[in-house]
Design a binder for these strands. Sequence first.
DNA 1: TTGACATATTCCGTAAACGGAATATAATCC
DNA 2: GGATTATATTCCGTTTACGGAATATGTCAA
Lengths: 125, 125
Amino acid sequence: MPRPSTTADVFSAIAEPRRRQIIDLLSRRRGVAVGTIVMLLGLPQPAVSKHLGVLRAVGIVSVSKQGQQRLYELNLEQLRPVYDWVKTFDQYWERQLDRIRAKAERRARELSSATGKTTRKKGTT
Amino acid sequence: MPRPSTTADVFSAIAEPRRRQIIDLLSRRRGVAVGTIVMLLGLPQPAVSKHLGVLRAVGIVSVSKQGQQRLYELNLEQLRPVYDWVKTFDQYWERQLDRIRAKAERRARELSSATGKTTRKKGTT
DNA sequence: TTGACATATTCCGTAAACGGAATATAATCC
DNA sequence: GGATTATATTCCGTTTACGGAATATGTCAA
């Protein structure tokens, strides 16, 4: 058994870069026609339709008919498993940010304490 | 061209449920031997080694030798693209939480204002 | 109906992914 | 050295993903 099929699992569905692009696009506008996506992303129409089909299958997007167009919009709550999983490591991300902050502060301190000393030549080890 | 290869793209790498399990496991302990993972997850050893290989290739985990064991540990910063991408929709998640909160509050209000009134029968529209 | 447009589906080919079994490598102990 | 343990790699088979081209469906308009 390979990876869970893209049409059944959110994580697999978003593994495709162009699908993430589509999601990004739909997160900014609502009710976007397929043709618009085709134009904006510069992909062949069947490709877009197929990707939308996958996203539809996992429930990430939903469609509505308007004349001969199909308007797609995001259904972000279907993306929540991903959000939740990543959120698990929040603690870590914050620690990382702290580390970066600390480093910046230390550098700032070093800089200020170096004020008045002779500037080291570049390349001097 | 199928999906970007699991060994090159973080999103593809984490599309595999068992790989996420391994990541979860490694997020709780550091320096875990392969055998431990095999035991804890109940997977065949070659499977684990292969999954670890994928995670290694994307940089999510790193190894160190200790005797004849290989100790794996997480390298979570490699997961940041996922975190960042999902974070994009933070606004949305918060809105969702607000909606849930609001609904709960409304329900609470309804409950308190219903105090003293006769209880509506279930199914009454 | 016919025709133009918007979108979906099908068919085909190629490239991987994953699992399983067997085997290889590498470190340790006798 | 040989045996044992821990881990990695290889080979094979099946399943699936994706892209592209062609085609089908569906909708409007005249």
